[in-house]
Amino acid sequence: MVELKNITKVFNRNRPDEFTALEDVSLLVEERKVTVFKGPSGSGKTTLLSIVGAMAKPTSGRVLVGAREITSLPERFLTEVRRRTFGFIFQQFHLIRGISALENVMLPAYTTGEKHAALRERALRLLELFGLSAKARARVEWLSGGEAQRVTIARALVNDPKVIIADEPTAHLDTKLSKDFLGIMERLNAEAKTILIASHDPLVYESTMVDHIIEMRDGRIRGSGPAE
């Protein structure tokens, strides 16, 4: 599905504050599996996810999505790959305040050129799927933490991506909401979505739905194997 070959990512290159976030990472993300990247803060999980999700380019190495190499693609094509292939769930949700939950869900599809009415219909269906029909027109700042995260999930799904990428999704959730989130991920995985989660929450990496765990430290993969 997604393959990384010898990926290195250096920030602030040739500056006094140069920092190597990833070093010679190679990885194959399997299709329709749930993979969890675990490791302490600063271990390179987020950077790895952003490179897998075509959000950032590596300093060196190659990234393949399907059979297509995307490392050298110009921004326009890279954006298209990101939009079509990946849906993102951020740790801080990153919903846009002042507009409704429905508009937030529609946002990633605005630039696809899809008809507004069809798009709206699809976004409403997604909100309904997560039990948020009644909150569709509510501004996102009025929503609870769990509701806001479900809006984020709906937003990640609006372009029907093959891969869902979640960065520390349970960091701001209590145990019940975390379990709800994992339940949704399990459901999506059952619908053939590939799930990638970065987390150091045992509730996540010890979950029965996880197929594969990749352990990271200091920008390198320290261990990799199937979940127990």
């Binding site: 326009r76 954006t79 993102f88 846009i96 990633p108």
Partner: peptide, 18 residues
């Protein structure tokens, strides 16, 4: 806030030109 929003738009699949 505006800068953050632009970052969100880029992250969810908007191009710079959009």
């Amino acid at each position: 806030e505006e800068r953050r929003e632009m970052g969100v738009l880029k992250a969810v699949g908007w191009e710079t030109s959009e």
